[in-house]
């Protein structure tokens, strides 16, 4: 089933609505949750870095769907990993096994898995809930023969609930916390720079807060390592109709506001224009 994913064109435009995706299981650590959703067709078409738009309730409040990265795929199901930050994610966290969710997906354009080299190495950098898409990515890279090292940063140890999952799957894992409660004390980007010296990478993949991504874009330049970064924006629709989800991007030599739900959310670092703070 994985090979089917890998041999599909990366930027396939298939997407569908599954109004009845059943929650197969649920996991929880503090503010963080995993829901596994049974949805055979969306699962079989998913590519790492793509996302779902999830309806969190049946009424008009909250109104819009919420975007979540595809965290993992297994057999007929895909997982989302999320942090409760507001009303929508809180409502979602109350769902139970057996409940059904209305989802749209797979949406957007994911990570490009083609890496040059005979034994390619990738550095996967996740900040907080930005770790979500990197598990699916690491599993797909492994099937391509790419060795992935995970860099996982958070404010405190509570923000690193997936560390055991990555270790159990056998990936080299480097953690950092800003308060020093676990792993390297400081920012994950500083940890990465330190580690790149002994453990060079041919590609950086990342998802997380803007500050982290911006720093990674600089690191990508300084160390001449191509980087693919997954951006976030408030999304009205997730499929190109509202023009709400824009970021400054350079496309065909032109700089402008581009929709990240269609052309992204993953972009090569050099395409992304960072606004002044």
């Amino acid at each position: 089933m994985y090979s089917a994913i890998l041999f599909r064109t990366i930027f396939g435009k298939t997407m569908r609505k599954d109004p009845q995706a059943r929650i197969l299981h649920k996991q929880n650590w503090g503010d963080y949750f995993i829901l596994a959703l049974e949805s055979p067709r969306i699962t079989s078409e998913a590519h790492p870095g793509q996302f779902l738009m999830v309806r969190v309730g049946e009424t008009s409040f909250p109104l819009l769907r919420r975007p979540f990265s595809i965290h993992a795929v297994q057999d007929n199901a895909l997982e989302i990993f999320f942090q409760t930050t507001g009303l929508g994610t809180r409502q979602l966290s109350l769902k139970q096994e057996g409940d059904r969710l209305d989802i749209l997906g797979p949406l957007g354009r994911g990570f490009n898995l083609d890496i040059e080299g005979s034994t390619p190495k990738a550095a996967l950098v996740g900040g907080g809930r930005g770790i979500a898409p990197l598990y699916f990515l690491s599993e797909s890279l492994r099937l391509q023969g790419v060795s992935a090292t995970i860099y996982y940063g958070g404010r405190t140890v509570e923000d690193l609930p997936l560390r055991k999952k990555f270790l159990a799957a056998g990936y080299p894992l480097h953690c950092s916390t800003e308060d020093g409660s676990y792993g390297f004390k400081g920012l994950i980007t500083d940890h990465l720079i330190q580690d790149l010296k002994q453990n060079p990478a041919d590609r950086i993949y990342a998802c997380g807060p803007d500050g982290m991504l911006k720093r990674l874009a600089e690191i990508s330049q300084e160390y001449s390592i191509p980087a693919e970064l997954s951006l976030e924006a408030i999304m009205g629709c997730g499929f190109g109709a509202c023009w709400g989800c824009v970021h400054r991007l350079k496309k065909d030599q032109e700089i402008g506001w581009q929709k990240i739900c269609e052309d992204g959310p993953v972009f090569p670092a050099e395409m992304i224009i960072w606004e002044k703070e």
Partner: peptide, 23 residues
């Protein structure tokens, strides 16, 4: 038309406020 800078959308009680700027 280039449209407005983001954030362009905000959700409110049973509603959506947009300032796309007719991009």
């Amino acid at each position: 038309r280039p449209g407005n800078p983001p954030p362009r959308l905000v959700e409110t009680a049973s509603g959506l406020i947009n300032a796309i700027g007719l991009q």
